[in-house]
């Protein structure tokens, strides 16, 4: 009986170690993903807040230079690779 409980404790400890390792692995993966340069990156922004601040004049809707509409298939060609 005592041996059974010791065995159970070992399994519990092993399980705890495994869960901890999985969490560490997930954390590191998430961190590494954050570090990767985003070649064709864009961001979701709080568009309502942006509109509000545009309307109040805090921000500007000046048209930018240096852009073009995406041509079909363009994104596939670049495949997210940063820095030409």
């Amino acid at each position: 009986m005592r041996q059974y409980f010791r065995h159970l404790r070992d399994i519990q400890l092993l399980g705890l170690v495994c869960v901890t390792l999985v969490f560490i692995g997930l954390f590191l993966t998430a961190q590494l993903q954050q570090l990767e340069p985003k070649g064709s990156g864009w961001r979701r922004i709080d568009i309502e807040l942006l509109q509000k601040r545009l309307e109040s004049g805090d921000l500007s809707d000046h048209e930018a230079a240096w852009y073009h509409p995406e041509i079909e298939g363009e994104g596939d060609v670049r495949d997210g690779e940063p820095g030409r």
Binding site: P37, K38, G39, S40, G41, W42, R43, R44, I45, I47, A64, A65, W66, Y67, H68, P69, E70, E74, G75, R78, P82, G83, R84
Partner: peptide
């Protein structure tokens, strides 16, 4: 979708995104 040509990222930006 727009492609920004300003920097080497060349972001492909959908409507409403930055």
């Amino acid at each position: 979708t727009l492609v920004c040509e300003l920097c080497p990222r060349e972001c492909e930006i959908p409507e409403g995104g930055s």
